[in-house]
Amino acid sequence: MMEQIYASTKVVSFSSGVQPGGFCYLASWDAFFLLNFTRVDKVFRDGTQVNIGNPVSYWSLGNRQGGRHFWFPYTTSPLDCYAADEITGQPSLAEVLNPAWKIPFGTWRAGDYLDEVAGLFLHNNYNGLIKIFRLADGLQTGQIQVPGGPSYDSLAYVSPGKAMAFHKTSGKVALVDYLIPALVWQSRVEPFTAAAFDCRHNLVVVLGADGKLRIYLITPVPAVLSAPAFSPEGNPYWLSGKKVRTQLTGDMGEPCPDYWIHWQLLGTPPRGSLWKDKSKTDAQGVAENFYFGPTDTTGEETVKVQVIV
């Protein structure tokens, strides 16, 4: 579960059938574009909502590399994807993002993702399957299967090569690296109506059914701190230090970076010694230390790790 840091007191009004992918973070605005049936709005994080025009009938949205969005007319297939104007948020007909390959029926959904820099189009297929197509010729170059993953509703830009998939009814999110391609980790937030990724501050921002915006850190709430283990496995040899590791993860196994882990030897007095009494978890949620055994004997020693959440 990701850590929620904010819920707006203002309520955003939206149509009951708003598309989950119709809510995009625009980096140049540092705010969100909301597509409704009869209006398009600019929405700030605190829920301030300003109408900036009407939508194009029978057009829908997807997210785009760099914290932008694109439009496509979904009644005509195969699809042309159009860049969006950064002042009005409306489609810019002069800029077709997929000139070489029109996206055929069956390989697109509202909320799909386009990276014209890497030349890739990501399509949310079904049951956690994300297909990756090359914009140059439509060749499927890879796919990412999220284990136990739902049919994601939208994908949003996180950083170069990385995108986040959102599923509204379960609140599941998945960070994928679409250049490798591979799943990085999964987590979840409260179920929502629409979601966007604030790539400037690394935040998941969701629009709840109650109209409130909720902001989550990309880091999950810590749930499990693994028992410390030697790495590589084996016993320490007297005074030579041996690396000992622990991993802090969320309830779906996602890593929790930037937490201070406190290390302690429980023997009275301790038989060996630790290099540090505190260390910080890295991007994988792993904190490391070194244990130095006693000089004179063999035996057992208990290492205790703690974390302040």
């Binding site: 850590e3 840091i5 904010y6 707006s8 007191t9 203002k10 540092d30 705010a31 700030f44 994080r45 605190d46 301030t48 604030d198 501050h201 935040l203 902001i215 850190l217 880091t219 930037d258």
Partner: peptide, 21 residues
Amino acid sequence: LTEPVPVSRLRTGDLVRFVAH
């Protein structure tokens, strides 16, 4: 002017960033 909204982790001792527009 929008309300200031936290955009980083709220932890004792940490630098917490707020953004308003």
